[in-house]
Structures are given as C-alpha cells and as structure tokens.
Amino acid sequence: MNMLAQLKPGEKATIKDISLVDGLVQRRLLDLGITEGSEICVKCKLPFGGPIMIESCGQCVGIRQKEAKCIELERV
C-alpha cells in the first residue's frame, strides 16, 4: 500500500483512497477537485517534516505530512 508521504519529488500517482483523512481536510481536497481517481504529481517535499507540495488539476496544493500518511495511492 503506497501512501502520499512515501513518494519522492517528480513521482506521479493516482489517488485511491482519501477516507482515512480528517473530514475537514477531505472536504477541502474535494473542493479543490482532488478526489479518488485524480492524478497527482509531487512537486517538492519541504524539510523537517514540512508539507508536501502536490500538483493536481493544474494547481499546486500543500498537504501536511500527517494527512499525507493517510492518503492511499497507486503509482503511475
């Protein structure tokens, strides 16, 4: 099982499951058009446990490590 926190910058994947993420974060991702089946690309991982910058649907979004560990992916 691959999680978003495991991807390296430049890697692409498809979101499989976001149901383990906190409800408010889940809602925010859905509002941004990031849903199960969306393809994402990791742009960068900020140091010292900082957020992971991902690109999806032409926009960049920062996701905390805590949430990134709950988002299940399938590598492309």
Rank of each mutant, 00 (worst) to 15 (best):
G50W: 08
E36H: 06
I34N: 03
T35G: 13
L46K: 15
I52T: 12
I54W: 05
C41S: 14
I40E: 11
L46A: 02
G50D: 02
G50T: 08
L29H: 00
K45A: 06
E36V: 09
E39K: 12
E39G: 02
E36G: 03
M53I: 15
D31G: 04
P51K: 09
L46H: 08
G49C: 02
V25H: 07
K43A: 04
D31L: 09
F48Q: 10
L30I: 15
L29S: 06
G37N: 10
V25I: 12
G49L: 02
V25E: 13
I54D: 00
F48I: 02
Q26M: 11
G37E: 04
I34D: 10
V25F: 00
Q26W: 09
G49W: 03
V42G: 04
I54L: 04
Q26P: 00
I40M: 08
S38Y: 07
K43Q: 14
G50I: 05
R27N: 13
S38A: 14
L30M: 12
V25P: 00
C41P: 00
M53T: 13
L46E: 12
Q26K: 14
G49T: 11
G33E: 02
G37K: 11
K45M: 06
M53R: 15
K45I: 15
P51H: 11
I54Y: 00
F48M: 07
C44E: 11
G33F: 07
G33M: 10
P51D: 14
K43E: 14
P51R: 08
R27F: 13
I34Y: 10
I54A: 04
I54T: 04
K43G: 01
K45R: 15
E36R: 13
E36M: 11
M53A: 12
G49H: 00
D31N: 15
G50E: 01
P47G: 03
Q26S: 13
I34M: 04
G49F: 01
C44D: 12
L30N: 13
E39P: 01
K43M: 12
C41N: 05
I40D: 12
P47T: 05
C44L: 13
K45S: 01
I52P: 05
I54H: 03
G49E: 00
F48W: 00
P47F: 09
S38P: 03
L29R: 06
F48N: 03
R27S: 10
F48P: 00
V25T: 15
G50S: 06
G50R: 07
C44K: 15
R28N: 14
P47A: 10
